[in-house]
């Protein structure tokens, strides 16, 4: 359902969508039932010639039942939601699968800097590839990210991943994702961070292994002399 609005491109996107749908269905069911009942009561007991209004204190058992029964049923629904939410939260934010590659993400007013591991697959080496507002990842590969901020709070948000993580100055926050579908999508900032917040967009390029290898070839500092000439947006 949600996928028809925003594509799902990470291993946990489907779980988050399922949880979202579950909440939507439960809440929607109760909303429609309660509103329906209210409107029916309003209609049923509307003003009539000769009928006097009645003052009801709501203390009789037969009356409090109208509260306690639905209350218990809502709690049962809550149980499902809580169990689902804890499970998804654990999978996405607490559990950290082993990384095949790590990417450093630096947020600042108003840009994203992505430090890619480069051809050797290791971060912090000389062949790292630094890009502003461009994240290149390979499909079906598990990534860790190390999220930083140089100034104020930001939030790293990738809608197609269903991922959102705040960036806090002074901290390096680790998380993970695993892209499952090749394509090019938006990255945005999801925490008000100043006048340029709404313009703090970037792009994620999820590439097939062949595409990713081609990109690495093109960017690799091993051929830096040739590359600096063709490298876009270096300044």
């Amino acid at each position: 359902m949600i996928e028809s609005l925003v594509p799902a491109a990470s291993s946990y996107a489907a779980d988050i969508d399922a949880l979202f749908t579950l909440i939507f269905v439960f809440v929607g069911f109760w909303l429609i039932l309660c509103e329906g009942l209210f409107f029916w009561l309003i209609w049923r007991f509307r003003k009539k010639e000769g009928a006097r209004g009645q003052y009801i204190t709501g203390e009789l058992k037969s009356e409090t039942r109208w509260i306690t029964y639905p209350h218990l049923l809502v709690l049962v629904c809550d149980l499902f939601i809580v169990v689902g939410a804890v499970k998804v939260w654990y999978d996405v934010k607490q559990y950290l699968p082993p990384a095949e590659e790590t990417v450093r993400i630096v947020s600042q007013q108003w840009a994203w800097t992505f430090v890619h591991a480069g051809p050797d697959g290791l971060l912090g080496t000389t062949d790292d590839i630094t890009k502003v507002n461009e994240l290149h990842v390979q499909v079906d590969r598990t990534y860790h990210y190390k999220l930083e901020s140089t100034d104020v709070l930001h939030s790293f948000s990738v809608p197609v991943f269903r991922l959102k993580q705040d960036a806090v100055p002074g901290r390096v926050i680790t998380g993970w994702f695993r892209p499952t579908q090749a394509g090019e999508w938006d990255i945005q900032c999801a925490e008000i961070c100043g006048i340029g917040h709404g313009l703090m967009g970037a792009r994620i390029y999820i590439e097939t292994p062949a595409q990713h290898a081609a990109w690495l070839m093109q960017e690799s500092p091993i051929s830096i002399a040739a590359v600096t000439r063709t490298r876009p947006a270096e300044e």
Partner: peptide, 10 residues
């Protein structure tokens, strides 16, 4: 758009 250009990135 240089990663170290704090002013320029703003």
């Amino acid at each position: 758009t240089h990663p170290d250009d704090v002013g320029g990135l703003r």
